[in-house]
Design a binder for these strands. Structure first.
Lengths: 326, 326
DNA sequence: TTGTAGGCGTTATCAA
DNA sequence: TTGATAACGCCTACAA
């Protein structure tokens, strides 16, 4: 490896001069500058980033901690964030937790180790006591004391879903989602507001009934058997709001397998925007959230955290994306 | 930040002793060890990783350079690799090139900067002169002089596709893929072997004709208009092999929109394994490649590179995944 | 305009 | 069994 010393020796100047040239700081005699630059180019010298990190005690790396990078929405979000942070010369480290608490803790610990400057955290686990106020963390879709967070307006999304179904004639509503957002769970993510908004609005609309089904966490894709049973138990249901597009998909498939037509007999709305489908069938109707907006908000929050500036929580708008299942 | 010096001072010993305790190296009197450990715990001391990197001149980070992390197969691959490298205490940095040459060059330059120890490279650009032999790079699906590479057995995949279509009665074959793999392109990726294997086999099978259509690179999803034209121009076609599942999807949709039934009138096979579809329609038939196998091969190659060991090129088997489009 | 030297937080070598 | 010290490569006062 060629170091700043090597260049200095060859150029017959002190290392400070080399430093001044590569960083374009201080004052250097133009002639010297040119000569040094030429030698730098000849030798192919590039300053060692680790040494710079050492000095600043900053890695210029941010960890993106998520359950699984193959979930399409996370991929979209990661894509936007990486693109934005590239402009800030901040790199993104992917960290898949597989929902495992221990892995999450290890990833968070990278902050103490100075391995990363900040953390973008997507988790469903109960780790409030691991994320101490003041840590350079941005949480998505989940509130922790003292940690800035970014989320979609899930509550409005729930309302929107109820309105759309109602507008299209549904009167027997059903919500289906996972237990992390359950009424009885002690974990309360922002995502639970999808259900709450939906139920609140259904009540206002005075629909005949509103059922909520919740399944154990970890089952990202609800099991077909469970769905089948729900359908069987509730033959009168004509409008379903699913907590995600993936769940909506499972529900629609099972409905059709059991002789119900979508949207004729039952209308279904998912959540995320219906983009996750390289799809040969009908397009799913969905409450959409924008990776671009969210990515921008997270990027801004991360940069502010790194610069020790105050960060405010941010809630971003959602929209209805009409497909063919309503 | 609490440093090794702070601990040493508090413990009334030299920093070397603290170092020995945290690394469990050298010899330390048991009593001292216990006492020091207690102080470490009390102070919440954790060794600064940047300082360690400084000393070893190693970051324990690998860059995963890809066109776009929302492509499902890349996501799957990244997932496997991250999981494996986690066990080696090596982190993965996501780098989206968006197929831009300049970004790829910048990412490759992170090796010189010591920002990453190695690079996993997925590219369609002509950058042979940027990846010099000996650089700690592992290339996927693309050969570069002096750079170890990993790929699926694309040629066999092409043969498999031809065989499956033939077996199911197709006699008028068509291949559709992008130009990076084109006969006339000067860029030759391993992926082009899908077409070559397909065409070779079709000739052996003496089918009536084999057409190959190729569209400009960058169009990951071929445009519907182009597909429509191809279909219109070739009404006799009864078997199509698409270079990817995404392209197969576009083709099938357009076929059905134009009154052709799949698989009754035309059979279609894609490439990647048909897993990328959270799908409401028929499952796509596809030549599959295994992210697990490929991930393992890449991880091994990366670790060997970091340890300056010789790495051999690796070709991994593909398989036929039957869906409902053949 | 330039060079010298100190320091960032470790680990490793060498004496004691 | 220990501690002082010299790296690792860079930036930045401070002095010249």
């Amino acid at each position: 490896m060629v170091t700043i010393k090597d260049v200095a020796k060859r150029a017959g100047v002190g290392i400070a001069t080399i430093s001044r040239v590569i960083n374009n700081t201080g004052s250097v005699k133009p002639a010297t500058k040119v000569r040094v630059q030429k030698i730098i180019d000849e030798m192919g010298y590039q300053p060692n980033d680790i040494a710079r990190q050492m000095l600043k005690q900053k890695s210029n790396i941010v960890a993106f901690v998520q359950p699984n990078n193959t979930h399409f929405f996370f991929s979209e979000l990661l894509y936007e964030i990486e693109k934005l942070l590239y402009e800030d010369n901040v790199k993104v480290m992917v960290c898949n937790s597989s929902e495992e608490l221990e892995k999450e803790i290890e990833f968070i610990n990278m902050l103490q180790l100075n391995r990363v400057d900040a953390l973008i955290l997507l988790t469903n686990n109960e780790i409030q006591d691991k994320v101490k106020p003041g840590m350079p963390i941005v949480s998505f879709d989940r509130r922790f004391d003292g940690i800035p967070f970014v989320a979609s307006d899930n509550y409005s999304g729930g309302i929107m879903a109820a309105d759309e179904l109602y507008k299209n004639g549904c009167r027997n509503m059903l919500f289906i989602g996972d237990d992390a957002q359950g009424e009885h769970s002690n974990i309360q993510t922002e995502v639970s507001k999808r259900r709450i908004g939906f139920v609140d609005r259904c009540k206002e609309l005075r629909v005949n009934e509103v059922l909520t089904y919740e399944y154990p966490l970890g089952d990202y894709l609800i099991s077909p058997n469970r769905v089948k049973q729900i359908i069987k138990d509730n033959p009168q249901t004509d409008g379903i709001f699913a907590i995600s597009d993936a769940v909506a998909l499972a529900v629609i498939k099972e409905l059709e397998k059991n002789g119900k037509k979508v949207p004729e007999d039952v209308k279904v709305i998912g959540f995320d925007g219906g983009r996750s489908f390289l799809n040969l069938g009908k397009r799913i109707s969905s409450i959409g959230q924008s990776p671009k907006l969210i990515g921008k908000a997270i990027r801004d929050a991360v940069i502010k955290q790194i610069n020790n500036q105050k960060v405010n929580d941010i809630i971003l708008p959602v929209y209805f994306s009409k497909g063919e299942t309503v």
